[in-house]
Amino acid sequence: MNDERQATVRLVDELGASGKVRQIFDDIKATKGIDRVPALWRALATAPDELELVWTSLKARMHPEAVGRESNLDAKTREIIALAVSATNGCSYCVNSHTAALRKQGVDQETLGEIMGIVSLFNSTNALAEGYQVEPDVFPPLD
């Protein structure tokens, strides 16, 4: 690892990981079909129980087939939601990660632009509705 700072903690070296961290790192790579463990997971590995908690939750939601669960949302839709929330929250790490995942699924630049346009539109209209304190008058049906 170089001397350039990558996080507020020293990232766990992927090759030196052992025990629970090694198992989770291997699972991350296998589940995501990648050949290295991304920096976020290496940062979380400084607290192995937190790494396990976050990975278990993410795997169940973003890769449900890997835990034997069916989702009503396809993989692309799940990534679009993740990208939209990441952009809204201002997380450049997550925006890049979910954009890369969408590009891997065949989403082109024009489609990414359309996604970002919708994100921008609803960030704006949400702020307007909240700023005007408009009371809801359109409701979903109750099942």
Rank of each mutant, 00 (worst) to 15 (best):
H63T: 01
M1H: 04
R61S: 10
A66K: 15
G113H: 10
R10D: 10
M62F: 07
E110I: 10
D13I: 01
E114M: 13
N2E: 12
L142Y: 02
Q6W: 05
S120L: 14
I34E: 09
G131A: 06
S120C: 13
A87Q: 13
M116H: 12
Y132I: 10
R103N: 00
M62Y: 05
A39M: 14
T99E: 01
Y93V: 09
E70R: 14
I81F: 10
I80G: 01
L121W: 11
H98L: 04
M116D: 04
A82P: 03
A87H: 12
R36M: 05
T46Y: 00
D74C: 11
R10Y: 04
K59V: 06
V107S: 03
D74F: 08
N126K: 14
P136L: 00
A17I: 02
M1K: 02
P136R: 03
T125P: 06
V12Y: 01
P136T: 00
Q105R: 12
D49C: 00
E65R: 15
V67K: 06
P38K: 09
N123Q: 15
D74Q: 09
V12C: 00
L15K: 13
G106R: 08
A43C: 08
V85M: 13
S18L: 05
C91G: 11
V37A: 02
V134W: 05
D13Y: 00
Q133V: 04
A60W: 01
G113S: 08
A45E: 03
A45N: 01
S86E: 08
L15F: 05
Q23V: 04
K29H: 05
R78N: 05
R5G: 03
T8H: 12
S124M: 15
T111A: 15
V21K: 04
A101P: 02
V54S: 01
